[in-house]
Design a protein around this nucleic acid. Structure first.
Lengths: 305, 305
DNA sequence: CAATTACATGAATTTTATTCATACATGCTT
DNA sequence: AAGCATGTATGAATAAAATTCATGTAATTG
């Protein structure tokens, strides 16, 4: 009666603290999870979670959580071994190209985690920034690129990683801090501090400022910490991923506000040649990246196909 | 895609060496198992068993077997803990009464295995033999009795353990050893050596000799080894469970033959008061007994409800 | 080389899981 | 306190998956 599916549900419930969030994470409806949980609890005659917010595991829930943490990794390791036994053991190679500056924050831990499972796969980072990263796939200069848009493209498979919110950053006590969220024209009067990247890759510019015809003075900085520093010293505004600025917000260095009423959300995807994307070591890399991101980055959300 | 069910199937296949036997052991049809195995192998693109007789695990099969042996005990331990958390922790008691002499052979190891899982359950053997063991349940002198027949009985739950073959034992070189199997009249001319138990409990007498009106001279012995000794010294014939005589046959001390064309098969069951039989520690005792028996006794078969 | 035994397979059936459409509960805002 | 917003529960409908049934096919044995 107790199945692996149940263990995954329990893990997701504990991580996310809510049926609804756990459901989206597992690509199921809230209803499905509710049925499952109720059925499991009824079968053993024991409550697994207190229906509080957030959900809290009972002793029985904790017991199953421990089981899940023991058993699920073993299952995954075994299926990996199985796919390895199945494939013609030609070793894999992953030359990875990255479009966005902040991506290194989570890419490095992801690559480390992956290396533990697939030591035989040779990983490389393709240096520099590129005008057309997808071309790298066709030119066989990269095997996997991380991009912020999915355009159907012959011979290329895209896989969603996650979506995240871009927040507007300003100095503490900045007049705009009194607003609940910023709009395009709020950016008109302060310099905008960005990475040295083409506008095409700067979501605020491309999706908010340019459509509104707002074109503030610009200032460049290479590193996230440098951008935050400049904002804190009242040199201008910036827009950065929520996860990247989280630590600075907690220490009160700067203030962040959503961009637009519903916030400005961006997605990240991997792209790979079809022939590579279907291979197990490739798929597992994407899965590992996604999992690692959800474990370490606060405030990110699942991203549908 | 890989589920616990698959792991159980793979374990059963490896133990039994055949889809058909594994299927009966799992209370499924051969067809169901074939579908499962084929689907699993197709999904990972790898063979798990060579279709030889007996079935032999491939490297991939061995890998999953290792997984099963790691994971399944953990699952069982967790469900036990769950039922313990569920029940009002009144400690259980198991006073066990046994009808058949040879039962101690497998009962003791079974009790040992059970003690490891349920240390808090107090186990006792109710000594001596009893004319009506079921009465012990009503008189509250025993909590579980092991019997060879199931009669519906108000307030008593029977659970099947296994079935086994009774073999006729004779000295090496005995004239009857030339027959493929023995019939009732073959017993007429030699003394019959039995345990000191009422005829009702001696399956050969009750189900073969008495119906045929055959009534040989009798001789008694307390211990299995003593019975075998007497048979070997040409003092008479005996009928004992196949599993009990297996070691003596292997060493050539005596010879065994089936009784009747299809053999003489007996079943064993547990009986307990309904109120007890539904409790987790009780059900788990019966499961442990059954499992232990199948692990240690050669030639026994599953027994339907 | 039958006869037997065991595995595979397609279609039908049963069982189980999931969704859909709501109802119900809880907390927050005005 | 009424009205939203958010989150969980539930019954019925639907979809998906597992199992059986009824065979066919392959391997094994006397």
């Amino acid at each position: 009666m107790l199945t692996l599916k149940h263990l995954r549900v329990i893990e997701a419930l504990n991580d996310s603290g809510s049926l609804t969030r756990a459901a989206t994470r597992l690509h199921l409806t809230q209803s499905a999870l509710s049925h499952q949980l109720v059925a499991l609890e009824a079968h053993y005659g024991v409550a697994l979670f207190e229906r509080s917010r957030p959900l809290r595991a009972t002793p029985a829930g904790v017991r199953l959580l421990a089981l899940a943490q023991e058993v699920l990794p073993k299952m995954e390791a075994a299926t990996r071994d199985l796919t390895r036994l199945a494939e013609d053991n030609q070793p894999g190679r992953l030359r990875i190209a990255v479009e966005c500056h902040t991506c290194y924050d989570w890419l490095m831990p992801g690559m480390d985690a992956y290396r533990a499972h697939w030591p035989e796969v040779e990983m490389d980072l393709v240096g520099g920034f590129h005008t057309d990263p997808l071309a790298l796939l066709h030119e066989d200069k990269a095997d996997l690129v991380i991009v912020s848009e999915t355009a159907r493209h012959k011979g290329v498979t895209f896989s969603p990683l996650f979506r995240y919110e871009m927040l507007a950053l300003m100095a503490t006590g900045h007049p705009l801090a009194s607003k609940a969220y910023l709009t395009a024209r709020d950016f008109a009067h302060d310099p905008l501090i960005t990475y040295p990247a083409p506008d095409r890759l700067l979501d605020v510019v491309r999706r908010v400022l340019k459509p509104a015809g707002v074109n503030p003075e610009r200032r460049l900085a290479e590193l996230t910490i440098a951008i935050v520093q400049l904002v804190a010293s009242r040199k201008g505004l910036a827009a950065l991923p929520a996860w990247a600025v989280q630590p600075f917000l907690e220490r009160g260095y700067v203030v962040a506000r959503p961009i637009g009423k519903n916030g400005l959300w961006s997605g990240l995807y991997t792209a790979a040649r079809d022939s590579d994307a279907s291979r197990a070591f490739h798929r597992d890399f994407v899965d590992t990246l996604r999992e690692q991101a959800f474990m370490t980055l606060p405030g990110i959300e699942p991203l549908g196909a």
